[in-house]
Amino acid sequence: MYNVIIAGVGGQGSLLASRIFGNVFLSLGYDVKVSEVHGMSQRGGSVITYVRAGERVASPLVSDGECDLLLALEELEALRWAHTLKKGGKLVASSQRIAPMPVITGAASYPTHEQVTAEIEKVTSDYLFLPAEELAEQAGIARASNVALIGGVSAKLDIDEKVWLDALHATVPQRFLEANLKAFELGRNYK
């Protein structure tokens, strides 16, 4: 069983990211379930999406402590969901920081990067932050930070690059495909 959680802010494109993962696992021949979030939380709320692959997948949800790979589209969301990782699980996160409303109103403060990584290290040392937003802007499409991040993930997983590219072809609308492929490459080659 391989368990992935994609965490982000509503509107950031976790849905597309989850569909890309779903397609990747599908073409590797696994049973797949992807649990999406629609509705209220898509209005800028904290959103998590689950992708599970294996011989036979029952629950569409990933239980706390069983996540192999956490993909976080935003730094605070990496912190919020780090506890879902199994010990030593992988975390790939965007270093983009989007202030939630309690931070904007002054009711809470956004933790520093050091506070975030200190918490993450309690669960895993296998983590990577990358400037997905900048990479996406470099690729010419600001909204493709999700795909840049997936590029970063792809470099950490033992899955043929072609499988990822096929999944991008299958899920990204034609008009945005070229820029997304570029964002993927930038993420994949980020050191």
């Binding site: 509503g10 239980s63 706390d64 409303m101 309690p102």
Partner: peptide, 29 residues
């Protein structure tokens, strides 16, 4: 959730870290 069922029926506690304190992110206009 599967964890809840395992715990209540089989008495098996999941091995999971406690969630870190993080400011909430409610939906907004």
């Amino acid at each position: 959730s599967a964890n809840m069922l395992r715990e209540r029926v089989l008495g098996e506690k999941p091995e999971a870290a406690a969630p870190a304190a993080a400011p909430a992110r409610p939906p907004v206009l």
